[in-house]
Each structure stands twice: as C-alpha cells, then as structure tokens.
Computed example of a mutant assay.
Amino acid sequence: MLKKYRRYKHPYIITSIIILSLLLFLSLAAPLLTNYNPVRNDARNRLKAPSAVHFLGTDQFGRDVFTRILYGLRASLEVGLAVVFLTVLTGGIVGVLAGFYPGLDKFIMRILDALMAFPGIIIAISLAAIWGAGKLNIILALSFAYFPKMARIVRSSVVAIKDLDYVESARAAGARDSRIIAAYILRNSASPIMVQATFNFALAILDEAALSFLGVGIMPPAPSLGAMITEARNYMVVAPWLIIAPGIMIILSVLSLNLLGDGLRDLLDPHLKNSFKK
C-alpha cells in the first residue's frame, strides 16, 4: 500500500491539484465570497486602495476588483473547459480517421499541416475578428486553432497501436473497426490525449486573456482577466493593484495546468515513469 502511495505521490501533480482546487473553489463560490456586483459602477469609490472593505481595491469605475477577478476567473475556466472538450472531440475523430485509415491519412494530414503552418494565436485572432467578440466565438476560434495538434497526437498514437498483436488478434476474430477503435485504440491512446488536453487548457486561458486584451474577446463590462489588464494600463502608476491582481491570477492558472501536464506526462510515460521511480 505504501509503495502504491509513493508511486502516485508526484510533486508536480500534487502542487497543481492544490492550486487548481483553490482556483475552482474561488470561481464557483464567487457569490458567497463577495456581495458586490461585478459590473455595477460606483463613482463615489473610484480607484480605492485595497482595504478591509474592498480586498483588492476598486477600479476606475468603482467596481470591486476582487469580485471582478472571481467572475473573470470563472469565465476563463469555462472557456478553457469548453475548448478542451471540443479539441479532444474534433482532434480525436480526425486523428483516428487519419491514423486508422491509410486512404484518408495523406489528405487529412496535408490539411492539418497547412493549418499548423500558422501560429494558433494568429488563427484565433483572425477568426475572432471575423466572427466578432463574445465567449462562444472565442471558444470556437480557439478550438479551431488547437485541434490540428491534438489530431496529430492522436494520429501518431493510432499508427503506433493499430498494428500491435492484440489489435491484429481482435481483427482476426472478426471485430468491427468501431469495436477495435473504441476498445483498443482509444483506450491505449488516453495518456497522450490527457497530457495534451491539460496543455490546451492552459493555452486556452492564456489566449482568452490575450484576445480580451486585444479587444476581440469577452467584451466589457463583462469581467475578463485580459480585459481587466487592458483597462488598467492607464492607471498603473496610481493604482498598480488593478494590473497586478489579474496578472497573478492568470499566472497561477497557467502555471498550475502546465505543472499538471508535466506531472501527467512523467507519470504516464513508461520511460519517464521508470526513471521517476528510481
């Protein structure tokens, strides 16, 4: 029992789970942790310094910064989760088709290569500018930008697994392609998918903040960590808390997810796992 506990006691995973649990609690419990409205202006309390009344001060419109960070964090996590779901779904389907059916492989991979020739953030900015700002458009734009890499990872796993002995045995026994893909291919491709999903989650939070910062993301007055940093640029000297607080929240979110991805990669990769045990 002790050996089993030590096996899964990975410092990166433990640290990331603690930080992510705290961030998730703050986002879900926002209505219980604050009584302020995140979008209501209060001109009498403009640019108030942090105090017992306003934990992280107020912004140029008198809105409570702590409240807006909590709701902005919730929006970032919602975007990240939705992007991960769509990239895993679309990337998984495309990757399985390319890896399992050689006839489709060249056609699909050439399209993916063309998409991956452009940086993901450039694709996301272009699509967000065309489709317009808004949470749904951001989710779709980021998902379209990220799914080619997920598809390539899934395709590589499928190519490596589909010719193994147990897959050939199932095929010889008369198993259908759908059965082989569901029971053997996808089950044994779960590790790289999980690792890439965590990195996509972190990248989605960072790029959502970047899109909001550029003005093509979540539009004011709706709270967004990136938009809060944009609005705080003109008040960095007189009210530095306006830019420091949301910046720290973005750093913690991205750092915890990257730590989780590194930890899962070390734990699930057979070669790294053996070195980690030593």
Rank of each mutant, 00 (worst) to 15 (best):
R233G: 00
R152Y: 04
I185L: 14
S178I: 13
V53F: 02
R155K: 15
D262W: 01
M109V: 06
Y12G: 02
L260V: 04
A128G: 12
S156P: 09
L257Q: 06
V84H: 05
S51W: 02
D269L: 06
D59F: 12
I205D: 02
P223S: 13
S178H: 08
V39I: 13
K106G: 04
A141K: 02
L22G: 10
P192V: 05
I229L: 14
I161T: 15
L242E: 02
G80I: 00
A182K: 14
L2S: 10
I125A: 08
I251C: 09
V79L: 08
V158T: 15
A128T: 05
S126G: 11
V65D: 12
A170N: 02
G62Q: 03
N188S: 14
L142P: 00
A182N: 05
I153V: 15
L225Q: 00
S169K: 03
A245W: 01
L33F: 07
L26S: 12
S224V: 06
A210M: 12
R110N: 10
L104Y: 15
P220V: 08
R176T: 15
V195S: 13
M194A: 14
A151S: 08
I218K: 05
T58G: 11
L127S: 12
A209E: 08
D42E: 13
A43M: 12
I17Y: 03
T67F: 08
L186G: 06
F201E: 07
V94Y: 00
H10R: 01
P221D: 03
M1K: 09
A202D: 07
A183F: 03
L24T: 15
T90Y: 07
L259P: 00
I122T: 01
I125K: 06
A175P: 03
S256N: 11
E78I: 11
P246W: 12
S126P: 00
L86S: 02
G72P: 02
I69C: 11
F276D: 06
G215I: 07
M249I: 10
A172S: 13
L255D: 01
P192D: 11
I18D: 04
L32Q: 07
V94G: 00
I161D: 14
D105G: 07
S191Y: 08
M150A: 09
A133G: 15
N200W: 01
